[in-house]
Computed example of a mutant assay.
Amino acid sequence: MRDERKKIMVSFLLGMVTALMLGFAFVYGIRGAGVLSAGKINYYKDLDAQYGKYYKMQKSIRDKSLYSIDKKKRDRYLSQAVIQSLPDPYAAYYNKEDYEKLERRYSESYSGIGISVEEKKGKLLIAHVIKDGPAEQGGLRKGDRILSVDGKKVHSVDDASDRIGGEAGTDVVLKLKRGGQDVTVTLTRQEVEEDSVDSKFLKAENGKKLGYIRIRHFREGTSEELKEAEERLMDGRVTGVVIDVRDNPGGIKDEGVKCADLLLPSGKILIEKNNQGKKKVARADGQCADFEYVVLVNGNTASAAEIFAGAVQVNRGGKLIGEKTYGKGVIQSVEKLEDGSAFKFTTEEYFLPDGTPINKKGIQPDIRVASGKALTRGIQMLSGK
């Protein structure tokens, strides 16, 4: 019933706009003012043929109904209904507040408690706790299951992230499941700065000195962080590097491309195709990493992380080790509206450098091992075993 109401309201709005345009067209066009061409008038006639009856319904309600339409509710339903009419699983409408949260998620700092969230087997788990953040200080641990935020159940990673984030200085209450026990924690949000790239030195059994780089997600500045991590490890004279994009959900496409460019010689990184079939190719500039490396992947490696891993594999920069990736091979655009709200929708599909599609298919690794054993296998491979 609610969906039908939303569809009707969408049509009402279109019909109302159409009628206004038609009135303008006939008043100025037919009277010879020369404002609109005959082609434009035919265009508005066509709109009226499609949506005019809904305007008439709207007019009758306005003139005769005992009840008035709630304009704020109408606008919210209309915006959501337009998005829901798309067969696009990634399309979404954000009101002003939600869009501000979305922007913070991909910025270098944000207001929150300092955790990242992942979904495993239908459960929402804490995937990472930022050092010295409110979550760590409050005793939250990797693997804690999130049951609710501020008394409300959460249903997805995005839902949990949006509810946990908020204005610095405000409190948030998390109900967790840990070791079979329910735990309730109240934390105060604060400005959190987290590097999207971590690095450290590893020592192999044969005495070789290796490096490890973890890319948690691709946001503004990730490629610069990766470059700095590479330089730090090379200054330490490592002989090889394990690059880990397991559980990396993606993020900003261009950052994924830039990170691949840091590693690869001249060649294609990515092929994009829009709804008109027009293709765009991203290429590496030829200045590549001067060390041996492998890339770890799993079923939660998605989107921009798959762009990165796929480019490495096809260009034979390094072996992929782990499990088949998620398979999100489409790109979304976000358009901001005048009132501060925004909407996201799929605008392009991307392909590996050799033209292979990955959407709903994923990327098969060169060496298949369970995700939990991928790091050990990567170290062995770089150690010559």
Rank of each mutant, 00 (worst) to 15 (best):
2 R>M: 00
4 E>F: 15
6 K>Y: 11
13 L>Q: 08
20 L>H: 11
24 F>G: 05
25 A>Y: 11
26 F>W: 13
27 V>I: 06
27 V>F: 09
33 A>T: 08
37 S>M: 14
38 A>Y: 14
46 D>A: 01
57 M>W: 12
66 L>A: 09
67 Y>H: 06
75 D>I: 08
90 Y>I: 06
95 N>L: 11
95 N>Y: 12
96 K>N: 13
109 S>F: 15
111 S>L: 12
117 V>L: 05
121 K>H: 02
124 L>Y: 10
139 G>K: 04
140 L>S: 08
141 R>D: 07
145 R>D: 09
149 V>L: 07
149 V>G: 04
149 V>K: 07
157 V>F: 11
160 A>P: 09
161 S>W: 02
165 G>A: 11
168 A>I: 08
168 A>S: 08
170 T>L: 15
171 D>N: 03
173 V>G: 15
173 V>M: 15
192 V>H: 11
196 S>A: 02
201 F>H: 00
204 A>S: 10
209 K>E: 00
214 R>T: 03
219 R>A: 10
220 E>L: 09
226 L>M: 10
232 R>T: 02
234 M>A: 03
236 G>K: 10
236 G>H: 12
237 R>K: 11
237 R>D: 01
239 T>W: 10
243 I>Y: 10
244 D>I: 02
254 D>A: 13
259 C>N: 11
261 D>C: 15
263 L>D: 00
265 P>T: 01
266 S>L: 01
271 I>D: 13
280 K>S: 15
283 R>A: 14
287 Q>M: 08
290 D>F: 12
303 S>D: 02
319 K>G: 00
326 Y>T: 12
327 G>Q: 09
334 V>S: 01
351 F>H: 13
357 P>M: 05
361 K>V: 08
365 P>N: 07
370 A>K: 14
375 L>Q: 09
382 L>F: 01
